[in-house]
C-alpha cells in the first residue's frame, strides 16, 4: 500500500494553471504604466513616494512573516501591489516618513491582523490610506500641480520632512478638480481630466492609462471586469440623473467619471480578489453599491472625494452580499438555494 496523505479541503477542487503569483505579477505590469505616468507628471517627488511605499510594504511583509513563523509571502508580489496602490493614492509631495508609516499600517493592520494574504477583509492599501487620512489630514490634502518645470530636478522639502516632524510646503499647491468644484464651483474640462493634466494624488490623474491597464487584465481574465463596469456605470447614471435635474449644482457625469480616484479605485482597488464578492451577481451588487456611495459622499458629504470610503464600506458588506447572492447549487431548485 502506498503511503499517501489524504488531503481534505473545501471547494474549489479544480484549478487552472494560473497561480496567485502569476496574477499578481500581471497586476504589477498593468500598474507600472500608471506609476510611470505619475512620475512623468509629478517628477521625482512622486517617484520617491511610490518607491518608499513599495519598500515599506515589502519590508513589513517580510518582517511580519519572519515573526509569525509563516512561510514568506513576499515572492507572490501582493505586497508590491499594495505598496504601488498606496503610493499612487497619496499626494505626490507626501512626506516620505508618513508614506513609510502608511505602508507599515497597510500590511500590518490591513493584512496581517486579519491573517495575511487571502484573509484580508479590506483592501490593505486603502486601510493604510484611511489611517493616514485620519492621522495627517493636512498633509494628505496638500496637492501639487502636475507638469511643473523642474519637477525632475527639485525635491520638495515636504517630501523630505524629518520623521515625526510637520512637513513644510515650499511649492505652490493646487486644489484637486473635485475640491475646486465642491468649494469654489469650478468644473475642470473632462478632456484634461481624462489625460491627467490636473493636480491630484500621484495615480489618480490619467484615466486613459488606468483603463488600458484594466483592459489588459480583463482580457487576460485576471480581473473581474464586472466590478469596474458596474461602478463606473452606476456613477455615470446616478450622477447623470442628478445633472439632468439641476446642471448648475451637480457636476456633469463625465466630470464625475474622470475626476478623483474613481478610475484607479474602480479598476485596481475595488477588484481586490479577497475583499470583493465571489459570484457574478454579487459582484454587480457590490459595484453598484460602491458607485452609489461614491456619488452620495461626493455630493452630500463633507469631503470632496469618497472613493476610498465607498470601497472600504463595500469591502465590509461583501461577505453579506456573498451570502445573499449565492449561485444555485447545481441540480437544486431555486427555493432550496435561498
Amino acid at each position: 500500500m502506498r503511503n499517501t496523505t489524504l488531503h481534505i479541503s473545501t471547494s474549489p477542487h479544480i484549478r487552472d494553471g494560473i497561480t496567485t503569483r502569476v496574477i499578481m505579477r500581471n497586476v504589477v505590469w498593468a500598474l507600472l504604466p500608471v506609476a510611470g505616468f505619475a512620475v512623468y507628471a509629478f517628477g521625482i517627488n512622486a517617484f520617491l513616494v511610490i518607491v518608499t511605499a513599495v519598500a515599506s510594504c515589502v519590508l513589513t511583509e517580510y518582517i511580519l512573516c519572519r515573526w509569525s513563523g509563516k512561510a514568506a509571502t513576499i515572492g507572490d508580489w501582493s505586497a508590491v501591489i499594495t505598496g504601488l496602490l498606496l503610493g499612487l493614492t497619496l499626494p505626490p509631495i507626501f512626506p516620505l516618513w508618513m508614506t513609510f508609516v502608511g505602508g507599515v499600517l497597510a500590511i500590518g493592520v490591513g493584512k496581517f491582523a486579519f491573517g495575511g494574504i487571502g484573509y484580508n477583509v479590506f483592501n490593505p492599501a486603502l486601510v493604510g490610506r484611511a489611517i493616514l487620512q485620519a492621522a495627517f489630514p493636512v498633509a494628505i490634502t496638500t496637492w501639487y500641480p502636475s507638469f511643473l518645470e523642474g519637477r525632475f530636478s527639485e525635491i520638495s522639502s515636504s517630501v523630505l520632512a524629518f520623521p515625526f516632524m510637520e512637513p513644510t510646503v515650499d511649492v505652490v499647491t493646487g486644489a484637486t478638480p473635485l475640491s475646486a468644484f465642491k468649494f469654489e464651483g469650478v468644473q475642470a474640462a473632462s478632456s484634461d481630466l481624462a489625460l491627467g493634466l490636473i493636480s491630484g494624488s500621484a495615480g489618480e490623474t490619467c484615466a486613459v492609462i488606468i483603463l488600458l491597464g484594466g483592459l489588459y487584465l480583463a482580457i487576460r481574465k485576471m480581473m473581474n471586469w464586472r466590478i469596474p463596469v458596474a461602478i463606473l456605470l452606476t456613477v455615470f447614471v446616478f450622477n447623470g440623473a442628478l445633472w439632468l435635474v439641476d446642471s448648475t449644482v451637480y457636476p456633469s457625469p463625465l466630470f464625475a467619471l474622470f475626476s478623483g480616484g474613481l478610475m484607479l479605485g474602480a479598476v485596481f482597488m475595488a477588484t481586490d480578489m479577497v475583499a470583493s464578492p465571489l459570484t457574478s451577481r454579487g459582484v454587480v451588487v457590490y459595484g453598484v453599491f460602491i458607485g452609489i456611495m461614491v456619488v452620495v459622499i461626493r455630493t452630500w458629504g463633507g469631503l470632496p472625494e469618497g472613493v476610498m470610503y465607498a470601497i472600504l464600506l463595500a469591502n465590509a458588506v461583501s461577505p453579506h452580499i456573498d451570502k445573499r447572492f449565492q449561485n444555485r447549487v447545481y441540480g437544486t431548485t431555486k427555493t432550496v438555494a435561498l
Partner: peptide, 20 residues
C-alpha cells in the same frame, strides 16, 4: 514634549484612535 513642528497624529485624539 517635542521641539516645534512636531506632526501630531490627529487620528489618535479622535475616537478611532481609542480603538487603535
Amino acid at each position: 514634549l517635542f521641539p516645534n513642528g512636531f506632526q501630531s497624529w490627529i487620528v489618535m485624539i479622535l475616537p478611532a484612535g481609542g480603538f487603535f
